[in-house]
Design a protein around this nucleic acid. Structure first.
Length: 202
DNA sequence: AAACGGATGGGCT
DNA sequence: GCCCATCCGTTTG
């Protein structure tokens, strides 16, 4: 681990964190750091926007039961669920709930804090704000792909950490409707940090 | 500033 | 065939 990264990351988020109600996990991931120690170099960002996807939730991939595609969503909590959407982008989720129950948290936006040059190359964009302000964008910026579907986020190259210097999020957490879905659109399961310029929409 | 459409592929009815 | 948990360049107001 590089010197810069060591000064950034606190303790790794353990599996017990993900074994709590999914909306709570989605809320509590705000302010944590998503890190990928990739072969090309480290990249990381502060989580600023998430969405919860529940069982018996018509917007959730798990709604119609387990399939080959969504298998990891029904697997061990604290692992990744990565899938291809719109034929060209990937989305990254942290699996929650006990095995057999298909729930997860979609990561929608990060505030880039490490590996910004690498992110710019991967994204083909220069502006800091355009690196991780969307679910497809952050996945591309971090170098995450289909190969990461099912990986354990509590150990290994991809995972969540406490920030070394933590700031209070009191009064900054907003809860409202999810983005880009049709059914289940009335459920308030999106969480983001008020006023943060790296959130995917204002 | 908002609205729109094209790209692109896999999963499911 | 149709429907996407999206992104981006272009057009329109």
């Amino acid at each position: 681990m590089t010197r810069a990264v060591a000064s950034l990351l606190g303790r790794r988020i353990p599996r017990s964190f993900f074994l709590r109600p999914t909306a709570i996990v989605a809320r509590d991931l705000l302010g944590k750091i998503l890190f990928h120690d990739s072969p090309a170099g480290p990249a990381a960002g502060i989580v600023v926007e998430t969405e919860a996807y529940l069982r018996d939730d018509p917007a959730s991939h798990s709604f119609r039961g387990p399939t080959a595609r969504n298998a990891s969503m029904f697997g061990t909590p604290g692992r990744a669920y990565v899938y291809l959407v719109y034929g060209m982008h990937h989305c990254f989720n942290a699996v929650t709930a006990p095995a057999g129950i298909g729930e997860a948290v979609l990561l929608r936006a990060l505030e880039p804090v490490e590996g910004l040059d690498l992110m710019r190359i991967r994204r083909g964009r220069d502006s800091d704000r355009d690196l991780c302000n969307g679910p497809g964008k952050l996945v591309q910026a971090l170098g995450i792909g289909r190969a990461h579907d099912g990986v354990d986020l509590t150990r290994g190259a991809v995972g969540f950490h406490e920030p070394k210097v933590s700031t209070s999020l009191r009064g900054r957490v907003v809860r409202d409707l999810r983005v880009g879905i049709t059914s289940g659109a009335e459920l308030p399961l999106r969480f983001y940090l008020r006023g943060n310029p790296f959130v995917s929409r204002r």
